[in-house]
Design a protein around this nucleic acid. Structure first.
Length: 1053
RNA sequence: GGGCCAAUAGCUCAGUCAGGUUGAGCGCUCGGCUGAUAACCGGGAGGUCCGCGGUUCAAAUCCGCGUUGGCCCA
């Protein structure tokens, strides 16, 4: 791995480094090097094992990897166990697809045990593929020992935590209205419901009043919930109208909110109407009505308090102002119904078909019954209007089936009971960025409902609750409070083995279903059975901070490390993992399980749109690596805001990043040939060797400033700021200024003190840059380190460079900043004066009214002269050679001179103040000019051009003398010979013979004065005047309009 | 429908917290330099600071109302 190519080729570098790491166990060496450092407990957010790495997960793992590498280099023993989230419905659905299943029934027929084995195989296969993906971007985690949510230790961690939650009285069982996927036949958490636009029926239905004339009108998009209608809700704040409406000669009385009268009448296509009476919502409370499908659904709610009008807060003056309410379905309906003490009637099964209680519709799938219900309502004369409506509607996140709202029995963690504690615990974690915590996260927690943790599925952690047989949660008659009281919550395999009636080996038992389903517990003569549900998969990852430590099975690490020092995920996890962990940590242990959060963004396409198959705008990490490389991809991702802001992926931007690595590569390989020639080993660089020049001191000082700025950025996990500060230093300071400044010194004699100083400085700068960059770009830095030093097994095991105040000289940095600005202005002035940098000038004038600027240039005058190629510099507050040039003011000249004004203008324009003062002549007559007729602008005298910089102006005197011209031409000849040497591919130290002919006698004479200089610079042994005789190369050049013919010959021994 | 975030040069982004003539890099273009050469340096062109309104002597920045995109929630 010793050859350094002329070109930076990421693929070659990365291939070589990967092989090197494998061969030398670089990862293990790195961990070993920091094994005794203070611990840093990082916890990996477990990606779900149903897909492969995409750009977003690549970013996520890259950021984590960079932080871990940085933390190690700054002296921490970092926990780097990767995690995988391997349970849950998404995998079940994928396996069902593979097996061609369509319903739960298929799973039962296939056999639960076999199905679960398939899920495990699927998850493991995906995990292995994802391992490889993550490794491919240089993510150094402990891939041999990931934590997996399906391992017995991990599942036990969930059981233990849940039992703690139960001990705190926060586990409840009860009926709740939930989103149910009728295909998966399970309840879904809110965040598992995705909203898509669908077209649904939109019907207005008349509910005939029982104790008076007329009907109330409701609107619904779910006709299938009408069989379960239990009450109608009105608003306390609305006024309602009794409307006498007429259609086709028939009259009827309907009640709607006053504001909705016109809308409803229009929908019903009534010919005419009159408002008979208005009344408040309150006045309507207690009115009763007939169920509009009374005959079709004989068992419809008719219990005490049913078919009655009540108020509810969820009623708005929308559509009709009255709301059909079915506590057996809707969440709000359920809450209000419970509040009113109404029974819950839900005639729908978990698979979305009506039960016998639905009468005529029994056995039908609810959404398919919509049409029959609509027809029956119409036949009953209850349909006021019948339309369709496009709106967003919830769908199962995995199988895309439209969800239905049902009231079922579920197990909950009563988050609402500990809300104050949750809000307090938020404060214990520091977030980057902080606004995410204080706005979004806090808002969410304030509104968080109880956490439904039960799923009626197979591939998950079985809920460790055993309840008395006959009192299962599916039993309609079971008393809820008793159930919670009587439940037994098992916290571990040991406890399980001790408690159950069967023989169980805690060492070998697999806690998955169906193994645990058959285990019973007998206590005081009562037999307990496990509730059949599994945990919501969000509960799995919520226990990650102790699950990854094997707690409670292993307690040592937990006691030492917990809670986590840092977690890193994208902003979608605010209400995902950031939340679930806080909820679980608080409910189980009373505290936040993490101390710091770094929240990054999403990787979108170049237009800021989500990458998706349907938009065809997906960029894969593989493609990015193929086109640009691993280090450039990582660096590109990390150079953008890492705190809450999305990334718009752009190929050009990735290309720019490659460009910056090219610069770094060039800086790195630039000194190598010289050092090799001198037998200089950069690893042995010693600042005491050689002599430091001002630019050496400056770049070393800049390096200290850069480290200090990077430290500040890292402290705030502003990873992008740290990286960009470093990259700017490499391109702006090291490449553009420093390397350019020391190039000449590289050609000094081998024992030159100045050269040794430059070697030492550049060695130190490169050594530190390599280490500073290592966390971001692990491959190229390893490559460079191994070429440059290589003493340690890997650069990643080394320490991060620290600020050395001995080399910090802010005043010098200020001086050089001024110098660079002035130098830039000088270059501009030269360009305007048509004098290229290779040609020396006699003098440069720096004019500044700022004393500090003048002093800076004065202190650095030698360097300044060198860089602007001038023989002298004058530093002044004002440049007194400027010429005041007259500008006629025509608003004054015109009225005074009338017809002669044009002549006056021409005579005045461009003359100097002296000439004006001496008097202007027009047609032989001297004329009088008033002060206001002329203004003056300052111009440089002939041969001098100026350009401003921040803090002053630089003037360059480009007047030629023979001496300047002689050197200029000589330098041009040198440059041409060097080009020819290079074209011949000569060795740097190889000698040549030169022949030179210049097609202008005067110039030839001038150049002749510098024969020795030329011969020395181009390593010419002989210098003749017959270029054509040369055998190796003859070329004629145009130098400033003069034809110059050069011939060169390699010296042959 | 609600909350949070974003929108500034062709592209990527600073600047917004703390109001005072919009900046940088890349790209483009013209020129220069050059034994780092697919590198490097300088000049130039290139902006309704997403829109509309308000506060203010003064708004990219503060406030309000929108538009577009992202995430989360309903």
């Amino acid at each position: 791995m010793d050859e350094i190519g002329d070109q930076y080729t990421p693929a070659d570098v990365e291939e070589a480094v990967t092989a090197y790491w494998d061969e030398h166990d670089a990862y293990e060496a790195t961990k070993e090097a920091h094994a005794d450092d203070p611990s840093f407990f990082f916890v990996d957010g477990p990606p779900y094992t149903s897909g492969q790495m995409h750009l977003g997960t690549a970013w996520n793992k890259t950021l984590k990897d960079a932080v871990i590498r940085y933390k190690r280099m700054t002296g921490h023993n970092v926990t780097d166990r990767p995690g995988y989230d391997m349970h849950g419905l998404p995998i079940e659905v994928k396996v069902e697809e593979e097996l061609g299943f369509e319903s739960k029934q298929d799973i039962e027929e296939y056999g639960m045990e076999a199905f679960i084995e398939e899920c495990m195989r699927f998850a493991e296969e995906n995990r292995e593929a994802m391992d490889e993906d993550f490794k491919s971007i240089g993510a150094w985690f402990d891939w041999d020992d990931p934590y997996k949510t399906i391992s017995p230790e991990y599942m036990e961690a969930a059981w233990y935590a849940f039992s703690q939650v139960a001990d705190h009285g926060l586990v409840e069982q009860g009926k709740r209205s939930i989103s149910q996927c009728p295909r998966c036949e399970t309840g879904l958490a809110n965040n598992e419901v995705e909203y898509d636009e669908v077209v649904d029926p939109s019907i207005y239905v008349k509910f005939p009043l029982a104790d008076r004339e007329g009907s109330v009108v409701i609107w619904t998009t779910t006709p299938w919930t009408i069989p379960a209608n239990t009450f109608v809700a009105v608003s306390e704040e609305l006024t309602y109208a009794a409307v006498r409406a007429e259609k086709d000669g028939d009259e009827e009385l309907i009640y709607v909110a006053e504001e909705c009268v016109e809308g409803v009448l229009k929908k019903g296509r009534y010919d005419d109407y009159a408002i008979e009476e208005t009344l408040s919502g309150e006045e309507m409370v207690g009115w009763t009505y007939e169920h509009p499908l009374a005959e079709e659904v004989p068992d419809h709610p008719s219990f005490e308090g049913a078919r009655t009008i009540y108020t509810a807060e969820y009623v708005e003056a929308d559509r009709t102002g009255l709301v059909h309410s079915a506590p057996g379905h809707g969440e709000e309906d359920f809450e209000r119904g419970t509040e009113l003490g109404l029974d819950i009637f839900c005639p729908v099964d978990s698979d979305g078909t009506y039960t016998d209680a639905a009468g005529k519709y029994a056995g039908q799938f609810v959404r398919e019954a919509n049409e029959d219900i609509r027809a029956d309502l119409e036949a009953n004369g209850a349909l006021l209007a019948d339309e369709t409506y496009e709106h967003s509607y919830g769908h199962c996140w995995r199988c895309d089936t439209g969800v239905i709202q049902l009231v079922t029995d579920q197990w909950f963690i009563s988050i609402t009971d500990i809300k104050d504690e949750l809000l307090e615990n938020i404060e214990d974690a520091e977030w980057h960025p902080q606004w995410a915590r204080d706005n979004r996260f806090r808002d969410f927690i304030e509104n968080a409902p109880d956490w439904n943790v039960s799923r009626q599925r197979y591939w998950g952690i079985p809920i460790p609750i055993w309840v008395p047989s006959g009192g299962t949660p599916r039993d309609e008659d079971a008393d809820r409070s008793d159930l919670t009281e009587d439940m037994i919550v098992i916290d571990s395999r040991e406890t399980l083995a001790a408690a159950v009636d069967q023989d169980v080996d805690p060492e070998s038992i697999d806690l998955h279903r169906p193994t645990v389903d058959d285990l019973t517990i007998t206590r005081d003569g009562t037999t307990y059975r496990r509730v059949p549900d599994v945990f919501d998969v969000w509960l799995d990852s919520s226990v990650a901070t102790w699950g990854t430590l094997g707690y409670p099975g292993e307690t040592e690490d937990f006691e030492e490390l917990w809670p986590a020092d840092l977690i890193i995920e994208a902003h979608d996890q605010t209400r995902g993992w950031f939340w679930s962990q806080l909820g679980m940590g608080t409910a189980a242990f009373g505290e936040s399980p993490y101390k710091e959060v770094l929240m990054h963004g999403f990787a979108n396409d170049k237009n800021g749109r989500k990458m998706s198959k349907s938009l065809g705008n997906i960029v894969t990490p593989e493609e990015a690596i193929d086109r640009a490389g691993r280090d450039p991809l990582r660096t590109y991702l990390l150079s953008h805001d890492q705190q809450g802001v999305d990334l718009s992926f752009e190929w050009d931007g990735l290309g720019d990043t490659v460009g910056r690595f090219n610069i770094l590569w060039n800086v790195f390989r630039f000194p190598l040939p010289y050092m090799e020639l001198d037998g200089y080993d950069p690893a042995d660089a010693d600042m005491n060797d050689g002599e430091l020049s001002i630019v050496d001191e400056w770049v070393l000082s800049r390096l200290q400033t850069v480290k200090a700025e990077m430290d500040d950025a890292w402290d705030d996990y502003a990873v992008h700021d740290a990286l960009n500060t470093l990259l700017d230093f490499v391109t702006e300071d090291v490449s553009r200024f420093y390397v350019k400044a020391i190039r000449e010194r590289m050609w000094d004699e081998s024992e030159s003190e100045s050269k040794l100083g430059a070697y030492a400085t550049l060695s130190v700068v490169l050594d530190e840059v390599i280490r500073l960059l290592a966390p971001f770009a692990p491959y190229i830095t390893e490559r460079m380190y191994q070429r440059f030093d290589g003493e340690a097994t890997t650069v990643h095991a080394l320490s991060y460079p620290e600020v050395d105040s001995e080399f910090h000289d802010p005043d010098l940095e200020d001086d050089i900043a001024v110098l660079r600005a002035a130098e830039e202005a000088a270059a501009t002035a030269r360009q305007q004066g048509g004098r290229k940098l290779r040609w020396p000038v006699d003098r440069v004038i720096v004019a500044s009214e700022d004393k500090a600027v003048r002093e800076s240039i004065d202190r650095l005058s030698e360097l300044f002269l060198d860089r602007v190629n001038s023989r002298s510099v004058e530093i002044v507050d004002t440049f007194d050679e400027l010429v005041a040039v007259a500008e006629p003011q025509m608003s004054a000249v015109g009225p005074a001179f009338g017809a002669d004004a044009q002549k006056v203008m021409q005579a005045v324009e461009g003359t100097t103040r002296g000439e004006i003062d001496a008097g202007i002549e027009i047609d032989g007559e001297t004329i009088e000019l008033a002060d206001e007729m002329v203004e003056y602008r300052s111009e440089t005298p002939p041969g001098i051009t100026g350009a401003a910089f921040e803090g002053g102006t630089v003037y360059v005197d480009t007047t030629l003398t023979d001496e300047l011209e002689a050197e200029g031409y000589a330098r041009d000849v040198i440059r041409r010979v060097q080009q020819m040497r290079k074209d011949l591919d000569l060795d740097v130290e190889e000698s040549i013979d030169v022949g030179l002919a210049i097609d202008d006698d005067r110039i030839a004479g001038l150049v002749d004065e510098h024969r020795e200089l030329i011969a020395e610079e181009v390593r010419a042994e002989t210098f003749g005047d017959d270029p054509k005789a040369a055998e190796d190369a003859v070329e004629t050049w145009d130098v400033e309009g003069i034809s110059v013919t050069i011939g060169i010959d390699r010296r042959r021994e």
